[in-house]
């Protein structure tokens, strides 16, 4: 019984903020402050909060959502194009430099990504790329954990004998990858896309450093400027002309988290495996 109580108490700490975030947009600011913190208001309130959010800086939020989606899509697509062939080559071929590439990949996986952000910024400034979407998309497409997942997958799921049979039949190495390796890669593609997407979508430090025009912002960056005008911290600092209050901010936060929450729900089955280990950093 005490065991259950301990687990349940911890559960309350973890889940209450999320429940609050889901419920808050259904309330009005006044009822949220005056009434009980956890109660359902009405769907109409959600619609009005959404309207207020969309009116913020002439619909800037929609642009941020579009940017986040665009950066994530481009970066994940590139990640897949890079990591599936690389993982295959590392798992099924011995070549000069293989050990070095594998070791650097492992280091890149474990090293907190934040550690490289400022050196990347200096490099991008020298290359004249800061401020462009590429300064976010390209560095995030370098995703060593994706290569590691592809490597593990091909090492365990693709017997060398199948490839040898293909070689005897005279197929070239690239052809073997396209006809045998690639069709077998589907589970790895799913996993890499999942972790890669979460990684890009939730990233804050890199776009924060690289982008300075708020029209190029991601949703994570936009949330910060929203936060300044909500008066969540200093009630007096909120611009009174803006209709951005607690319910609007909570709704924006919910929109920012919705894709990751959805991805987590879908990926629940993968939780059983230890595969998550490398995703836990930064």
């Amino acid at each position: 019984m005490t065991r259950r109580a301990f687990l349940a108490l911890a559960g309350v700490f973890f889940v209450l903020p999320l429940v609050w975030m889901v419920l808050a947009p259904t309330r009005t600011a006044d009822s949220l402050i005056g009434g009980p913190p956890l109660a359902f208001g009405s769907i109409a309130n959600v619609a009005s909060a959404w309207g207020n959010l969309m009116a913020y800086n002439d619909g800037e939020l929609a642009g941020w959502i579009g940017n986040s989606v665009g950066y994530a899509a481009a970066s994940v697509a590139l990640t897949l194009l890079l990591s599936i062939p690389a993982g295959y080559a590392l798992a099924k071929h011995d070549f000069a430099g293989r050990r070095a590439v594998l070791t650097l990949t492992l280091i890149g996986m474990i090293l907190p990504q934040t550690a490289l952000v400022l050196p990347l910024y200096l490099e991008m400034t020298a290359a004249g790329l800061t401020g462009t979407p590429w300064s976010v998309i390209l560095p995030l497409a370098f995703y060593p954990f994706g290569v590691y997942l592809a490597y593990l997958h091909f090492a365990s799921a693709l017997p060398g004998a199948i490839l040898d049979a293909g070689r005897v039949d005279g197929a070239g190495e690239l052809r073997l990858f396209l006809t045998i390796g690639l069709p077998l890669a589907r589970p790895a593609i799913g996993l890499i896309a999942f972790f890669g997407f979460v990684n890009v979508w939730t990233n804050f430090f890199l776009p924060f450093v690289m982008l300075d025009d708020d029209r190029t912002f991601t949703l994570q960056l936009g949330l910060m400027s929203l936060l300044q005008s909500t008066g969540a911290v200093n009630a007096s600092s909120g611009f009174s002309s803006l209709n951005i209050h607690q319910p609007e901010a909570a709704l924006a936060g919910l929109v920012a988290c919705a894709p990751t929450l959805a991805a987590f729900l879908v990926a629940q089955r993968a939780l059983r495996t230890g595969m998550l280990a490398g995703a836990e950093k930064g």
């Binding site: 903020p17 999320l18 808050a24 913190p37 936060l227 969540a232």
Partner: peptide, 24 residues
């Protein structure tokens, strides 16, 4: 689940959690 709420969304959420007038 809370692992899905990171970065600025987490900061925003926990600021509200620290505001007695709206926090559960």
């Amino acid at each position: 689940l809370p692992g899905a709420v990171t970065g600025s969304a987490a900061a925003l959420l926990w600021l509200f959690m620290m505001s007695p007038d709206v926090s559960p």
